Amino acid sequence: MPTVIDVPPTDPRVAALLDAQEAELTALYDGDPTQSEPFDPRTLAGEGSVLLAVQHGPELIACGALRRWDAHTAEVKRMYTRQGDRGNGHARRILHALIDRARRLGYARLVLETGDRQPDAIALYERSGFVRIPNYGYYATIESSVCYELPLADEQTG
């Protein structure tokens, strides 16, 4: 049975998932690497950051992370499920585990970015209570970016 586990950002299985995600995003957005923020998984080793994965046997089949912005906000990063393992609720399990962890860490809100060519991701975030916000940070001028937030302070059910 697949299990959600904490993993270090140095785990080579995570690197394989993130490489697959990057290749898929590059292809989806016509080879334009600027559609995705340059990302160093080591940024997830800091205080208030979390990297979770779904493990099935020895393999990792999905992942997602929280990267601390400040004492009140974390950003959901690198949500990904291997193509052959999609449709089984793994992304939802990761996202809800991240939301739960963010609450336990005392964050008041989560933010995230996805792309307009990722309807399944958009549907997952909206079903999970995230609401659209103006594009922020790196994504402020990227027209294909879609940004969301989830206030956590007043909502204690998930």
Rank of each mutant, 00 (worst) to 15 (best):
L25F: 02
T26M: 01
T26G: 02
A27L: 12
A27I: 03
L28Y: 01
L28F: 02
L28I: 00
L28G: 00
Y29M: 01
Y29K: 07
Y29C: 00
D30K: 06
D30Q: 12
D30G: 04
D30E: 10
D32Q: 08
D32G: 02
D32M: 07
P33V: 14
P33F: 02
E37T: 00
F39D: 11
D40V: 05
A45I: 09
A45D: 14
A45E: 12
G48I: 03
S49T: 10
S49V: 09
L52K: 15
L52D: 12
L52G: 08
L52T: 09
A53I: 12
A53H: 13
A53V: 15
Q55V: 07
H56N: 12
G57W: 08
G57T: 11
G57R: 12
G57V: 14
E59K: 13
L60K: 12
L60S: 12
L60T: 13
I61S: 09
A62C: 10
C63P: 13
C63H: 06
A65K: 02
L66N: 05
L66T: 06
L66E: 09
L66C: 07
R68K: 14
W69N: 13
W69R: 13
W69G: 11
D70W: 01
D70M: 04
A71V: 00
A71C: 00
A71Q: 10
H72R: 00
A74H: 05
V76A: 04
V76Y: 06
K77Q: 09
R78V: 04
R78G: 01
R78C: 04
R78L: 02
Y80G: 06
Y80W: 14
T81V: 15
R82M: 15
R82S: 14
R82N: 11
Q83R: 15
Q83V: 14
D85H: 15
D85P: 03
G89R: 06
H90T: 08
A91F: 10
R92G: 13
R92Y: 05
R92S: 15
R93A: 15
R93D: 14
R93E: 11
I94F: 05
I94N: 01
H96S: 08
H96A: 02
H96I: 02
H96Q: 13
H96G: 05
L98V: 10
I99L: 03
D100N: 13
D100G: 14
R101I: 05
A102Q: 10
A102Y: 08
R103W: 05
R103P: 05
R103V: 04
R103F: 08
R104I: 05
G106K: 04
Y107C: 03
A108Q: 10
A108T: 07
R109S: 05
L110C: 01
V111N: 05
L112G: 02
L112T: 12
L112I: 11
G115E: 07
G115Y: 06
D116V: 03
R117C: 00
R117V: 00
Q118K: 06
Q118G: 00
P119S: 00
P119W: 05
I122F: 00
L124S: 09
L124G: 08
Y125I: 10
E126N: 09
E126W: 12
R127G: 03
G129I: 08
G129A: 09
G129D: 12
V131H: 09
R132C: 08
I133C: 02
P134E: 14
N135H: 04
N135L: 04
Y136V: 08
Y136N: 04
Y136F: 15
Y136C: 06
Y136K: 01
Y136G: 03
G137L: 09
G137Y: 11
Y138L: 00
